[in-house]
Structures are given as structure tokens and as C-alpha cells.
Computed example of a mutant assay.
Amino acid sequence: MYEPVRAPSPSRSVHSTTAADASSDFPHRSREEELEIQLAGHLAALLTVTDELRDLTPSADLDTAAERLAAQVARLRGGHSPLRAEPGAPRDSAALHRRAHVLAGRALVVAASRADTTAAILAAERMDAHAAAGAAEPKELSSTA
């Protein structure tokens, strides 16, 4: 049977620190705090892509989505407004819709795991919108000759 060690190991110094001792030297975040940070990051990235899409093809739907995303990011970041994308070089809107769809999916997963219904509904709506917009984009056929 197993018998516990009664004397300290000679290979271990009295002054050595263990992982448990070292871990108390820096602050820890709870799982909920980590998920909140992740969700804010995903929604902020989605907001950036949404702003880029608004620059390419302005629409009321994208304006509303951007406002809602900014409000959720601010809520998750304790009232701090997110940075917004500046108009830049023209980009491929189909690629932006695909990127936005992926980001919305990531946000949905994190929102669901932290039971944030408001953010989950918003992320699901954005996934649907970007999937529909991506399907409506004209496809370029490749020629095989």
C-alpha cells in the first residue's frame, strides 16, 4: 500500500518555491472574467469588419448592427467605447462577409458559454446576415483550360 512521505526530500531546498507559491504572486481572473474579455474582443473585431463593410456598401442594416455591437462592447468593457475602424483601402466585400460570419460565430460560442442572451442573439443575427450577404455576392467562376 501507499505510505505518505514523512520527511522532506533532500533534493528540495527549504528556500525553493513551488508552482502554487509562485501563482499567488500575480492576480487571477475568474472564468467568467476571461469569457467576458473574449466576448468583448470578438464583438470588437466584428464591429471593425462591420465598419469596413459600411464603408464599402452603406446600409441601414449595417448602421444598426454597428450601433448594437458598439453598445455590447461598451457594456462588456465597463462603459468604455470601442475604437472604430477608419475608412481605408477598398477590400473584397465577400471576404469581409466571410470574416464577419466567422467572428460572429466565435462571439456566439463565447456568449452562449457565459449565458449572455443579448450578445448571443446579436451574434446569431449577424451570422445570419453575413451568411445571406455572402450567398448574394456574385461568385467568380474559374476556368479550366
Rank of each mutant, 00 (worst) to 15 (best):
A74T: 04
L47E: 00
A124H: 09
G134M: 02
G88Q: 02
T57W: 10
E140W: 09
P138A: 03
R12G: 08
S11Q: 10
R77D: 12
E86A: 13
V14K: 14
P90Q: 10
A145V: 11
P138G: 04
A19Q: 10
L122V: 02
R54L: 15
A115I: 08
S142N: 10
L108E: 14
H80E: 15
V110K: 06
V14M: 10
E32M: 13
A65I: 04
T48I: 04
E34T: 13
A133Y: 00
L122S: 00
A45F: 07
A100Q: 01
S142Q: 11
P10W: 07
S93C: 06
E52F: 03
L83Q: 14
S81G: 09
L53N: 02
T17E: 12
A44F: 03
E140S: 15
V14T: 11
A123Q: 01
E52R: 14
E36K: 13
L103D: 03
R91K: 11
T144D: 15
D128N: 14
T57L: 13
D25V: 10
L69C: 00
H28C: 08
V109W: 07
A65D: 10
T144A: 13
P8E: 11
A20H: 10
A45G: 13
G79N: 02
T57D: 12
S16H: 09
A100H: 02
A120D: 02
L76F: 02
A145F: 11
I121T: 14
Y2L: 13
S93N: 06
T18M: 08
V102T: 09
